[in-house]
């Protein structure tokens, strides 16, 4: 059964088809949610909300684009809105952490590439980070990213380029690893 038929059966109230549609897409949704949230509980919450919204709104899916494109647009909306709320609440804690880190030499404090890279990616502006994670980490195309985020393909490319440039500066201590 192809996906169009599966969607038609979901619309008709077939719960087995719902589960099949979920199984076909949940891995990619959860992976993206986890990559952006960095937390299993949040990733599960976001995945759950994504599918609930998708099943609720399946009637509005016209089939102009692939179902996965439509679903990933819902995923990014759910995840980014959720993270914005969390960020606002945690801002004070982050400010305190930043204040305490003044005067600490970053290279000494964070000699590990993995840790430095995580901090550098986390510090990217939201749009840059989202595009970087989707493209360079999860392998989405610029067309898929543009459709999911509601931006032009060129915007996605530009944001990726800026994200990489910022990361290059942030990780300059490790330049020996990519410059032979």
């Amino acid at each position: 059964m192809d996906e169009t038929q599966l969607i038609a059966r979901v619309r008709a109230g077939d719960s087995a088809a719902e589960r099949a549609l979920y199984d076909a897409h949940v891995d990619r949704v959860y992976r993206l949610a986890f990559r952006l949230a960095g937390d299993d509980t949040l990733a599960q919450d976001f995945t759950q909300e994504t599918f609930i919204r998708a099943f609720d709104r399946l009637g509005s899916f016209r089939g102009d684009a692939a179902f996965s494109t439509w679903l990933h647009a819902i995923t990014t909306t759910v995840v980014l809105n959720g993270l914005r709320k969390m960020k606002r609440f945690r801002q004070r804690e982050a400010d305190i952490d930043d204040a305490q880190s003044i005067g600490v030499t970053r290279r000494d404090a964070e000699p590990d590439l993995k840790t430095r890279l995580k901090k550098a990616i986390d510090a990217l502006p939201e749009g840059y980070r989202t595009v970087f994670v989707m493209h360079d980490v999860e392998g989405y195309t610029h067309e898929e990213i543009g459709a999911a985020l509601g931006v032009e393909t060129g915007t996605s490319k530009a944001q990726l380029s800026r994200a990489r440039a910022k990361l290059r500066v942030a990780l300059s201590d490790f330049a020996g690893e990519w410059v032979p």
Partner: peptide
């Protein structure tokens, strides 16, 4: 960068 970034928020198997 792509190779190194695979460790970024590496997800566990989907529950």
């Amino acid at each position: 960068l792509k190779d190194a970034a695979q460790s970024y928020n590496a997800p566990r198997p989907t529950p």
